[in-house]
Nucleic acid binder design. Sequence first.
DNA 1: AAAAGTTGGTATTTATAAATATCAATTTTT
DNA 2: AAAAATTGATATTTATAAATACCAACTTTT
Lengths: 148, 148
Amino acid sequence: MLSEEKNDRPVYPIRTAAKLLNISVHTLRMYEKEDLIIPFKKSTSHRLYSKSDIERINCIRSAINDSKISINGIKTIYSMMPCWEVLNCSKEDRSKCAAYLRHNSPCWAIKGEDTICASKDCRSCTVYQDYGECGSIIKFIRKKLTDL
Amino acid sequence: MLSEEKNDRPVYPIRTAAKLLNISVHTLRMYEKEDLIIPFKKSTSHRLYSKSDIERINCIRSAINDSKISINGIKTIYSMMPCWEVLNCSKEDRSKCAAYLRHNSPCWAIKGEDTICASKDCRSCTVYQDYGECGSIIKFIRKKLTDL
DNA sequence: AAAAGTTGGTATTTATAAATATCAATTTTT
DNA sequence: AAAAATTGATATTTATAAATACCAACTTTT
């Protein structure tokens, strides 16, 4: 609990995060613009990154550099995550939700306006937090279908 | 029925297929080497393509050129197809099957040796035939989880 | 209030995925 | 048996995704 909290605490300013990841500041902003990550934002518009953020971005880097999956490929894979199952959306909610029928962007990029997600902070949502790792999404689907 | 049979009939030699798709012969071979497609092979090693093959390859081209998903991205998305659900594999079969735990290649590229797939011709398998289209996989998963 | 860092933007560079060209050997067709 | 097409393989080119560099305006820190 406590240690997880620590991992989620936004502590690194963008320059420090970039150094930890061995990439440029601009690349971090690009990932954000592409909806791969949601850094914490202070009262002003300055970004802060947590240990979990760094891990997540390392996964993204590995997908790009080792697995040779393009950014749009990663977005499409993210878009396959059945968020509605995790959040137990009602059939009504689903029918209203743009994220339910999407197939290009992660749910946090296109969440429906009338759904239970609308007012949520996606950064602290389990769908965003626990399924950023490459491979965790298919694991979720496999388990869900097997336990069926 | 009859018309579907016609669409599946391997009739175009590689040069004709390439012309229909407006790509080079070598690109077609590359897609095959990357396990995106399984063309029909005559007694010798010559390839033949069907109308369905052409459609499938058009989908792949659209994913690459329009959606900007890399070939490895497409392979990863194919690998997320729950083939074991379509084929109703037993728990025993699943536990033996490399395709069940994969996350890089489509099932037809790594089917398990001891499974019901082992001796099958993947080209004529519903998993290969019906889920080559971009977006059909997430549709399958969504439906399966919703009907749950 | 001066120094250090961040912002968003455009323009440029780099790395490499995707596609093409070329080849001799083999197969098919006529 | 000659002509046309396909095979696999390597080497090369092209297109573009991903990353970098640079900028003036703004924010934070000391």
